[in-house]
């Protein structure tokens, strides 16, 4: 393949924000993810669904190399963000994680004030030159996360004292504050009640304008509500990927159909 890539291919490559090619993940001897190929579109929400233990969270964590913190975990294949291989030795995983933010299953605000929770990332990466700029980042992040009105008068109170839903939106605001391009969400609503869930979902829908969002969820309704594209994982294999409507109304694979109709999982 010495010739130049065709215009068609080049266009395709610029279009997808994240592109994974033959990704394998091993936990020691256990082959957790097998041959996953996926293209994730920019400025859209992609959801990963599948039964427990199917590898969707594991795959999500390969996208910002969070698996590096686990000693026995090994990743093969290539994952490119903006056409750059993130597993290239030249890439600093710490820098990568500033670009690819993450929101976790359980809200995990630091035991600091609301202000310091948001300011944590910008301070580490030196995003603000002075206090005024930092104040701006904090307020705009909280505004984008739809939390500003609720907390603007109590920024110096501890983040751990908020309700579960507020804490999760605080964590989203914290991720936004380092101006990432991609936000990964690992079952962000599984610890929240329906009303808090609705707020977070609304927020995800708004964030789509500026960020590429990948969300792992156990709730098929949630996937249907918030995402444009859906990927179905089963036993470490990416079974099917496509437009959310197509996956839910017209699945091509028997396993996908069984899962979304509630026959297993």
């Amino acid at each position: 393949m010495n010739e130049m890539p065709s215009i068609e291919q080049a266009k395709d490559m610029t279009e997808s924000k994240i592109s994974a090619n033959k990704v394998q993940v091993f936990y020691g001897e256990n082959h957790a993810i097998k041959d996953v190929d996926i293209e994730i579109q920019p400025r859209s929400v992609t959801s990963f669904i599948g039964p427990s233990g199917c590898g969707k969270s594991t795959f999500l964590r390969t996208i910002n190399r969070m698996n590096d913190t686990i000693d026995i975990c090994r990743v093969e294949g290539s994952i490119k963000i903006d056409n750059e291989d993130i597993y290239d030795p030249k890439v600093d995983p710490v820098q990568l994680r500033a670009k690819v933010g993450m929101v976790f299953q359980k809200p995990n605000p630091f035991p600091k004030s609301i202000y310091d929770n948001i300011a944590y990332g910008p301070r580490i990466h030196g995003l603000a030159r002075n206090k005024a700029e930092l104040d701006d980042i904090v307020s705009s992040s909280l505004q984008k996360a739809g939390l500003w009105e609720e907390v603007k008068n109590r920024l110096d109170e501890p983040g751990t004292g908020m309700s579960g839903g507020q804490q999760q939106r605080l964590c989203i605001a914290r991720a936004i504050a380092v101006s990432p391009e991609v936000i990964l969400m690992d079952e962000p609503c599984s610890a929240l009640d329906p009303i808090a869930t609705a707020k977070v979902e609304e927020l995800i829908d708004e964030l789509r304008e500026n960020y590429t969002i990948v969300i792992v969820t156990h709730s098929m309704q949630q996937a249907a509500r918030v995402s444009q594209r859906t990927a179905f994982f089963h036993l470490g294999v990416l079974v099917e990927e496509g437009l959310t409507e197509d996956i839910f109304t017209n699945p091509k694979d028997k396993r996908t159909q069984d899962y979304i109709t509630g026959r297993f999982g």
Partner: peptide, 23 residues
Amino acid sequence: AMRDGSYGLGATKSETVRQVILP
């Protein structure tokens, strides 16, 4: 979860220790 939260924001180990774990 505290460590994950900090690493997820692009903090290094010593930053995480100093600013999240020790406090």
